[in-house]
Write a protein that binds this DNA or RNA. Structure first.
Length: 265
DNA sequence: GCGACAG
DNA sequence: ATCTTGTCGC
């Protein structure tokens, strides 16, 4: 993992005002457009990946990140377990995890200050260098355009994408019910977001759907973290969601976070 | 004051 | 996030 920028690291001991101020700095430093070297196509197929470029080209390393929580004797969540799964060409090449004590409770909009520390600790255990980080949570879809995907992406200056299962803020530009796989509905800034109204924050992306129009699967809310534009972020998530609704690196990190805590409780 | 609110 | 049974549908 690259060396983190110490001045921007999420610190759970900061005051709320300091946290929000830091988020403005993060948003200013963030790049919400494509700025990476790897080929965003064929991220998930090993054969395509190895034959796509020249013999010297390696498929990019995509790292999924997710957390689970541990409970103390009093029955309260006191520790976070962060799990990271590194994949290349659709194949898992390394996993790592870290357990840290929690500094603050969950507060909407301040998730990075609760889970950012454990995530950086887990990424530090990784021997490979990530080309792309995929998070379970928002990126630019955030009150101050600095969700956890953006925050960690900027601190490490690594391209990143936010994938949330529910919408934190912003206004979907169209219906989200019963959309076909591949559909992407723009999410624009509204009054709750610290950005001009109408700013494109990300997309509601349909990676799975039922055959019958009776029931409907909820979309994923995909937004740029850092150095990835909204359209490319949606493309990549669809590319990585090969077997399930969630992109494979995140799904495996989710599973690993659950499995790794079992021997600890 | 009321409503909204990633994991 | 986490606590949890049954139930509908392919």
């Amino acid at each position: 993992m690259p060396t983190p920028r110490p001045d921007l690291e999420p610190d759970g001991s900061l005051s709320r005002e300091e946290m929000e101020s830091l988020q403005h700095e993060i948003a200013d430093a963030a790049v919400f457009e494509d700025q990476f070297a790897f080929d965003p196509a064929h991220l998930s197929n090993p054969l395509e990946a190895t034959t796509a470029g020249s013999s010297a080209t390696e498929p990019p390393i995509v790292v999924g990140v997710d957390q689970s929580f541990l409970t103390n004797d009093a029955g309260e969540q006191d520790r976070a377990l962060s799990a990271v799964v590194a994949m290349r060409g659709g194949v898992v090449i390394e996993r790592a995890h870290a357990v840290t004590s929690l500094e603050i409770p969950y507060i909407p909009g301040l998730l990075a200050f609760r889970e950012g520390g454990p995530i950086l600790a887990a990424l530090a255990e990784l021997s490979v260098d990530p080309d792309l980080l995929v998070f379970d949570g928002s990126g630019r879809i955030h009150f101050r355009q600095a969700g956890i995907a953006t925050h960690v992406g900027v601190v490490l200056d690594v391209p990143s994408i936010g994938v949330a299962k529910s919408l934190l803020c912003g206004e979907p530009q169209g219906g989200l019910e019963n959309r076909a796989v591949g559909t992407r509905v723009p999410i624009e800034a509204n009054a709750r977001v610290d950005a001009p109204d109408g700013t494109l924050l990300g997309y509601a992306v349909q990676t799975r759907q039922y055959d019958s129009p009776n029931r409907s699967i909820n979309p994923l809310y995909v937004s740029p973290g850092h150095r990835v534009g909204p359209g490319t972020a949606a493309d990549i998530v669809l590319e990585l969601a090969t077997s399930y609704k969630l992109p494979e690196p995140v799904r495996l990190a989710d599973q690993y976070a659950t499995d790794a805590k079992e021997p600890l409780e």
